[in-house]
């Protein structure tokens, strides 16, 4: 009985409440910012933009503070056994919630491709909709012309997107090499592989920016170009945001590994980030298949 692990319960902490306030400021700022920039309500006297960025800064501040404590606890050896397992499990469940978040957008993509676009073109028992409302509309994917008449070109899969696929898959491999290095206590190889992974992640992002530019300026593919553009930018955009977060977290891991923070046995943060990175990679494979390729 006495063998059972004693559990570390942290005492009160200011970071959660700072985080709640930060979220609130961000949310409030985001809405007023959007209202200002889209003229939804009168813009005078509201400070959406500065409030929004203050909120984001507060969130960053909170994360620094909060993770700082957790790191210190871990260095003091308080994060052992049970707590480590709790952290791991919660990261896994968190990733499941992220899977479901992307699931909503993939759901929208499949719904559009399998149901709404064919139906608008008269499939099933929807001939009247087609004839009466959108007689010129044809069922194609990518949707070059919307029922309302909006026109766009499609993004070619085998150009930048394919290069990006190679980059991300490679980065998943390099992060695994980093993990192996850590497990074998190869303190020189670890930061090298991590740095390569960060570089790959960053190049992915740069290429995605170039791709977006091409979409907007040359293809006429924008958020506003019908359901094709909507699903395209929503999926790739949120994915890109996740790659950004992942790259930042990998950079933090790189800096921490240079400071000698991890040991072969105790490196939850590193593993969490690498799980996250693999997850982002898998999402991309689905994206590449269903958004770009087929």
């Amino acid at each position: 009985m006495n063998e059972a692990p004693r559990y570390y319960v942290p005492h009160s902490s200011p970071w959660p409440i700072i985080g709640s306030i930060a979220l609130f400021v961000t949310a409030y700022g985001a809405v007023t910012f959007i209202h200002q920039s889209t003229d939804t309500v009168a813009a005078e006297g509201s400070f959406g933009q500065p409030i929004f960025f203050t909120g984001l800064a507060l969130i960053a501040f909170m994360m620094f503070g909060w993770f700082g404590i957790v790191i210190r606890e871990s260095l003091d050896g308080m994060t052992s056994g049970l707590l480590d397992r709790s952290y791991r499990m919660s990261m896994a469940w968190f990733i499941l919630s992220e899977v479901m978040f992307f699931g909503a957008f993939f759901g929208a993509l499949f719904y559009a491709r399998i149901i709404s676009v064919p139906w608008l073109a008269g499939a099933g028992n929807n001939l009247e909709t087609h004839v009466l409302l959108w007689p010129d509309f044809a069922d194609t994917w990518p949707l070059f012309m919307t029922p309302g008449g909006g026109i766009t070109e499609a993004m070619e899969a085998w150009g930048l997107p394919f290069i990006n696929t190679v980059i991300l898959v490679t980065s998943s491999v390099t992060v695994t090499f980093a993990h192996w290095a850590l497990k074998k206590n190869q303190r020189v190889l670890l930061p090298i592989w991590l740095a390569i992974t960060v570089a790959l992640g960053s190049s992915f992002l740069i290429l995605q920016v170039i791709e977006y530019q091409e979409a907007y300026t040359e293809l006429g593919l924008t958020l506003g170009s019908g359901i094709y553009g909507s699903t395209f930018f929503m999926l790739t955009g949120f994915h890109g945001a996740h790659v950004t977060m992942g790259t930042i977290m990998l950079t933090v891991m790189l800096l921490r590994s240079l400071r000698g923070h991890f040991s072969a046995e105790n490196h939850f943060a590193f593993e969490a980030v690498s799980w996250y990175w693999h997850f982002v990679d898998v999402v991309w494979l689905f994206l590449f298949t269903f958004v770009y390729w087929f």
Partner: peptide, 22 residues
């Protein structure tokens, strides 16, 4: 509402019924 997407608008190839499904 604000960025011109057409998830729930038939004119852009989306569908308000999709809203209900999700």
């Amino acid at each position: 509402r604000h960025f011109g997407t057409s998830f729930f608008s038939a004119a852009g190839g989306g569908d308000p019924v999709m809203f209900q499904h999700i």
